[in-house]
């Protein structure tokens, strides 16, 4: 324990010895890093859950189970429903609102429109915070670099007052300044990796939803084509 205290002191001393702009930069980077990690984990959980739910719903849907029962289930358990289930629910509700006897064109248009709207909202939810990760990933190295440059500038300015330049005079200043770069990179690297990963995941989900929308509208269109079924149904 005593060891760690002395280590801590030296480390804290290095940070507290930095000039105010460098300290501000460090604080900013720490904040950015923390928030980006928070989003990284949140997105990780959300996307993992989303993919799982989509897989489950797709397998249930294509097993050929009753659309009505599926709709009932989706409507009752809306909190636990995945995006795909919600898209289906919105589309099917819109579809059932129309009574039989109306033209197939408007029915399908509005059904597809309803599904589109939910799809947009869901994508928006999935993509939320990704832009923050992208920003942190691209900007924080520069912010860290700014802190470092500022710190090194100070170190050299102090060096000019000393007269005799030794490594011992510059080293602490540079070490201090480099902490800012290290923090910037620490914030940026995971953010970039997470952004790329999550962007591709959401893109995959988006294509799945879009094709699902087309498929559902096809299935519903086939139902309209058989008015007798439709009559039983409503």
């Amino acid at each position: 324990m005593s060891k760690t205290i002395t280590q801590d002191l030296s480390f804290l001393h290095l940070i507290s010895g930095a000039s105010l702009p460098v300290q501000l930069v460090m604080l900013l980077l720490l904040l950015a890093s923390f928030i980006s990690w928070w989003f990284i984990f949140r997105k990780l959980f959300t996307l993992r859950q989303e993919i799982k739910q989509t897989d489950e719903f797709e397998s249930v849907f294509w097993r050929g189970s009753d659309l009505n029962a599926l709709y009932q289930r989706a409507a009752s358990a809306r909190h636990a429903a995945g995006s795909m289930e919600r898209i289906f629910e919105a589309g099917f509700r819109e579809f059932t609102k129309y009574q039989s006897g109306i033209d197939i064109g408007p029915i399908m248009d509005s059904t597809r429109g309803a599904m589109r709207a939910v799809y947009q909202r869901e994508m928006d939810r999935l993509e939320s915070h990704l832009s923050f990760l992208a920003t942190v990933g691209s900007v924080s190295p520069y912010v860290g670099l700014f802190g470092t440059v500022w710190g090194i500038m100070n170190a050299f300015r102090e060096l000019s007052n000393v007269g005799q330049a030794t490594i011992a005079h510059v080293a602490p200043g540079i070490a201090e300044a480099l902490i800012a770069t290290a923090m910037g990179l620490f914030a940026a690297i995971p953010a970039v990796i997470a952004y790329n990963r999550y962007a591709s995941d959401t893109a995959q989900l988006a294509t799945r939803y879009e094709s699902f929308i087309e498929e559902v509208s096809n299935v519903l269109q086939r139902r309209v084509a058989k008015p007798r079924d439709m009559a039983n149904f409503s």
């Binding site: 990690w37 939910v118 909202r121």
Partner: peptide, 21 residues
């Protein structure tokens, strides 16, 4: 309908903050 999913993630948020820490 849009806000509901947000509520659904509430526990995940806390867990994420913990992991970030």
């Amino acid at each position: 309908m849009v806000r509901l999913p947000g509520n659904k993630n509430e526990p995940g948020k806390l867990r994420a903050a913990l992991f970030a820490l």
